[in-house]
Design a protein around this nucleic acid. Structure first.
Length: 416
RNA sequence: GGAGGGGUUCCCGAGUGGCCAAAGGGAGCAGACUGUAAAUCUGCCGGCGCAGCCUUCGCAGGUUCAAAUCCUGCCCCCUCCA
């Protein structure tokens, strides 16, 4: 992780360039400049807010984009304010979906929250981060407080939000509780007196609601710094868990590397910009190289994959992941580290095991039927030899590597 | 409160008595090709040691030789009118 800088350690231009990097929209940008200037003058760091709702257990790179932006602010000497939306998460955020998210219990949310915070502090300096749960204020509000909060908004205003509008037009349900969500997020900004709020561009509406609420209580309104929505590995849809097109924060280095190699070429620059720390001038070089053909897209992507692994692990892991990838995909060889699967003698009949059973036991197929199909399609190998007969009874032998497809392996160990 | 529409295999969605383990698309998996786990093409895509059998179409019953399809009750969702 880069060292934190003190406020004003870099020029205002540099500071702005770092903040703008990969940002899709900053609104209003003039206000951001004013705030930055004032911060320098008064030696008062900006309070930069990021709210996360711990609705899932697993974080992926898409979640991380605004977090990395917060890291940037922190490194520039500003005050990070991380809000864990333990209350908002129980509501279900309508963001970008046309189905209401199923509500979580508060206990589930708190359990998730712990994991989140731990993961996020891999990127944020805990000492320079104010961590708050929004249940701290929402948990204390009475019904009349809620009504008062609601009175700040009109239905028409709320329906301006694109997602609500779409659902309204298409006859999809909009839960009343969902209408409250933007107000809650906005109220968070009031509570922490945010100068800047970060988020994906899908948060724009909510961030603007925060500005309105702040103005109403006489606070200087926050500035929104929105990141684009990171596209997933397919290059078409938003990175999301349910679509399965994601790189998880918990993915091992080889997975991260391989998944990165699978993104469409057009996505490379966005990933470079949003996820890596490769300098802006170097990015220009890469862009030019790709454009004039002097840089092979494969090489640009290999570097990207390394950079990404490096950011989440380290250089050593990145190089190892690359070696693994080359071995499995370029040379079509068995990787160095193959998980072992132990076969106990009880699963053998006269020292043999049916190939389908072998695959199931090795976790390479979900059922005998699936295993049969894999064999029938020529997708199964024993020590590199394709198995063609779905009825094959294999004389089990330790050390043999079973392979399904191009990249799923298991080394068999026969228990004695 | 009234009227109407609907709940199908991971998702979307066709199917209104046998030809239905259920069209089509998506996702996923495998094969070919490739710089690639991209794109494209091909195949597979409920379970069972599988030319056969078993379980599935909101839930519970019923009619029938035969039900995802018909009947009864229940649960859930949506739209319109008020």
């Amino acid at each position: 992780m880069q060292q934190g800088l003190s406020l004003g350690a870099v020029s205002l231009e540099e500071e702005l360039a770092l903040i703008r990097r990969g940002a899709e929209e900053i609104f209003p940008e003039e206000e951001l400049v004013e705030k930055l200037v004032a911060a320098r003058r008064e030696k008062r760091p900006l309070r930069v807010k990021l709210g996360v709702d711990p609705t899932a257990r697993e974080l992926h790179l898409g979640h991380l984009i605004p977090v990395l932006k917060l890291q940037t602010f922190q490194q520039l000497g500003h005050q990070a304010v991380l809000i864990i939306g333990d209350y908002t998460a129980t509501l279900g955020d309508p963001t970008g979906r046309n189905k209401a998210r199923p509500p979580l219990t508060h206990d589930q949310v708190l359990a998730n929250a712990e994991g989140y915070a731990a993961q996020l502090f891999r990127f944020l300096d805990p000492k320079g981060t104010e961590l708050v749960y929004n249940g701290r204020w929402f948990g204390q509000m009475g019904f009349h407080d809620v009504i008062r909060l609601l009175s700040h908004m009109t239905l028409a205003r709320m329906l301006e939000r694109e997602d609500f509008q779409n659902r309204w037009k298409n006859g999809f349900p909009i839960g009343l509780h969902e209408l409250v969500y933007p107000l809650m997020q906005g109220y968070d900004s009031v509570q922490v007196r945010a100068d800047v709020e970060l988020g994906g561009i899908d948060q724009k509406f909510n961030i603007l609601v925060g500005r309105d609420l702040q103005k109403e209580v006489g606070q200087p309104p926050q500035v929104g710094v929105c990141s684009p929505i990171l596209l997933g590995l397919d290059g078409k849809e938003k990175m999301s868990k349910s679509l399965g097109n994601y790189i998880a924060l918990s993915d091992p280095p080889e997975e991260m590397y391989g998944k990165t190699m699978s993104i469409p070429d057009e996505l490379m620059m966005q990933y470079y910009e949003l996820i890596t720390t490769v300098s802006l001038s170097e990015l220009d070089g890469i862009r030019r190289g790709l454009a004039d053909g002097s840089l092979h897209p494969r090489d640009a992507k290999r570097r990207l994959a390394r950079e990404i692994v490096m950011r989440f692990y380290n250089e050593e892991a990145a190089l190892a992941a690359e070696a693994h990838f080359d071995r499995v995909h370029k040379e079509r060889e068995i990787p160095a580290d193959v998980p072992e699967v132990v076969l106990d003698t009880a699963s053998l009949k006269e020292g043999r095991i049916w190939i389908a059973q072998l695959l199931v036991r090795a976790g390479l197929a979900a059922s005998n039927s699936e295993a049969r199909r894999l064999v029938a399609q020529g997708g199964v190998r024993l020590d590199g030899e394709v198995v063609t007969d779905p009825e094959f009874d294999w004389p089990a032998r330790s050390g043999v590597v079973v392979q399904v497809g191009k990249r799923r392996f298991a080394r068999i160990v026969v228990a004695s």
